[in-house]
Amino acid sequence: MMNSTSRRVVVITGASAGLGRAIAQAFAREGASIGLFARNRERLEAAKVEVEQLGGKALVLVGDVADAQRVEEAAAEVEREFGPIDVWVNNAMTSVFSPFNQMTAEEFRRVTEVTYLGAVHGTIAALKRMLPRNRGMVIQVGSALSDRSIPLQSAYCGAKHGMRGFTDSIRCELIHEKSRVHITMVQLPAMNTPQFDWVESRLPNRPQPVPPIYQPEVAADAIVWASHHRRREIYVGLPTVKAMWGNKVSRGLLDLYLGLTGYQSQQTDEPERPDRPANLWETVPGPYTAHGRFDARSKAFSTQVWLSENKWGIGALLAGGAAFTAALCSARRRR
């Protein structure tokens, strides 16, 4: 899945801040050539400097993933500059923290256009180039909310459910065509990113990720790892595993639990500022980076991710240990 050069070519949407910025840094440490796609040029230029300081190359691509034509143009720019795209990461998102009955149709449409259709547009642009070459990988940045919805984020949950649905459909088609192109979805827990300072909100208090919270580097490293392995789906963090498997077992009980706790768990005790910026319709200026304001409460490591990435080695070690123990017991019985 490598380009003809020693550098892999990667495109990351939503790359100017938050998780996308952390993903860019993680790929840069491998020396990748990276197309950085987002709306805010100032932060993209800062991300480009970071990428190049870490050993990668970067191309700034200003645009909105809701614009399919601009996504296609960006893909063409990357291939003119760096060569064939090896990995495409659909990460761009937006949301609205609001009860559904206070949402407008326009807000719902905009979240869907960015979070769901943005991934569709990116996948179209990527597969257009990867399928004829019979190589490449598309990574969908998902969420535990792609399976287990929570209150106050109906548009975002719907978009992530949609992302999972169309990804599963494409995967079946790739199998039918015996294609070497791979598509995977990385399901994430609550992340410490700036989105909670700029996502549109009608909540009385400041929004927060539902604890426990993870640093974006945990997910970024898992995404880079996924780009080297042909896994169908990867769960990041034990809360993701619990939410998604718990939803398969007892959806009704989770509905009840989240109905009672889901409002409070998504808000801090601090009242929201009336002049708070929102990035739903246009980019919010400011020097936002990968991290949000929850560093003191965020985990920088996930044992679950480590176990998932090393499961075959661990399995072999356990099997070897069991065989050794059985042989030892057998030798003792023969004495």
Rank of each mutant, 00 (worst) to 15 (best):
D147E: 09
E50C: 13
E77G: 01
R7M: 09
P285K: 15
F37P: 07
T104N: 10
L260M: 14
Q102K: 13
I175V: 14
D295N: 15
T167Q: 13
L307P: 05
H229D: 01
S6G: 10
D64P: 08
K128G: 05
A26M: 04
S179P: 05
Q102G: 15
P211K: 06
V71T: 02
V210C: 09
P132D: 08
W245R: 12
I139P: 00
R109E: 06
V9D: 00
Q266E: 09
T268M: 15
W88N: 09
F100M: 13
I85T: 02
R273L: 15
W225K: 01
E106S: 10
M1V: 07
R43C: 14
A300V: 14
S98T: 05
V138W: 00
V236W: 05
V51Y: 07
T261M: 11
L59W: 10
A226K: 00
G122Y: 05
V87T: 04
R129N: 02
A92V: 10
A278L: 00
R202T: 10
T94N: 07
A17H: 15
I170F: 08
T13K: 00
E72M: 12
D67Y: 13
F82N: 00
W281I: 05
A296R: 12
M103D: 11
I213W: 03
G320H: 13
K128S: 08
V9W: 00
P204F: 11
R333C: 12
G165Q: 10
T303K: 13
K57I: 07
G315P: 12
T268N: 07
R276C: 12
N310F: 09
A331M: 07
N192E: 07
G136N: 00
D168M: 11
V138K: 02
E30Y: 05
G55I: 06
E50G: 14
S146M: 03
T5W: 12
G162M: 04
E45D: 10
G31L: 01
F97C: 03
C329H: 11
K48M: 12
R202A: 10
A58Y: 07
D64S: 11
T5C: 02
T167A: 12
K311E: 09
E81V: 07
G286W: 06
R80I: 08
S143Y: 02
H182Q: 04
P239V: 03
A74I: 13
Q304S: 05
Q187V: 05
N101T: 12
V186W: 02
S201W: 03
S169W: 11
A290H: 04
T268C: 14
L203A: 05
R232P: 06
K242P: 07
L131N: 01
I170S: 03
A319L: 14
V49C: 14
S4L: 14
K160S: 06
G118R: 01
V210N: 11
A296K: 14
N205A: 08
T325A: 15
G165H: 15
K242C: 09
L44D: 04
W225N: 03
S227W: 00
S250Q: 02
R332N: 12
L127W: 05
D221I: 13
T13P: 01
T268P: 13
A92W: 07
V186E: 01
